[in-house]
């Protein structure tokens, strides 16, 4: 389906680009907000990524899917914005805390509350950690495509994923502890 619309846009049908906006805007926003941690900045990042994708569509070489190519643009734009703002703060994940966290309370919550809590926890993780978790679990990207998408080696992705899971458990535990108080 993507190929058909790419061809339409390349043939001069600008309105056909709306298909990509409708299909990918939510995931692009999810990726962007994981990195920049601010919904307004994330919106700008997604907007810039779409404009960049439109401007470079003729260079899309079809060696990967449009989805992977576009998400790579979103990730790069988000990381570029983050670097510019020098906002990268590692809030969690630095401490080597092996304490087991019981997250059963989270699993007993209502669905909406669970999703809210998960998003809060992801928001508190370091940008690359929340990004890797979102892409791995939400987009079901495998390690190899994550490596291409994030511009890191397979070994680095594995380490990052391991650290991100650990940080996520820790943050969830702390959020649950706070909510109990």
């Amino acid at each position: 389906m993507d190929e058909l619309y790419i061809q339409k846009v390349l043939n001069g049908d600008v309105q056909a680009f709306r298909y990509f906006l409708t299909t990918y805007k939510d995931m692009a926003y999810t990726i962007a907000v994981s990195v920049v941690k601010d919904e307004f900045v994330a919106q700008e990042v997604v907007q810039d990524a779409f404009l960049k994708a439109f401007g470079n569509l003729q260079h899309f070489n079809k060696r990967s899917t449009f989805r992977t190519w576009f998400y790579r643009i979103v990730v790069n734009e988000a990381l570029k914005r983050l670097k510019r703002q020098r906002k990268e703060k590692i809030l969690y994940g630095q401490e080597d805390n092996d304490a087991a966290v019981d997250n059963s309370m989270l699993l007993n919550m209502q669905k909406e509350e669970q999703v809210k809590m998960i998003n809060m926890a992801l928001d508190k993780l370091a940008p690359r950690e929340s990004l890797v978790l979102r892409l791995f679990y939400l987009e079901e990207q495998n390690i190899k495509s994550l490596s291409k998408l994030m511009g890191l080696s397979v070994a680095n992705i594995k380490v990052l994923l391991f650290r991100a899971r650990k940080s996520m458990l820790q943050v969830c535990g702390e959020l649950l502890k706070r909510s109990k108080m």
């Binding site: 805007k25 997250n103 989270l106 998960i118 978790l133």
Partner: peptide, 23 residues
Amino acid sequence: DLFKLIAESSLKMPFNGFEDTVM
């Protein structure tokens, strides 16, 4: 189970008119 929950925590673009602005 906790990590499976991430798969259900997709966010929606909260800004109305985003598509029109970009178009």
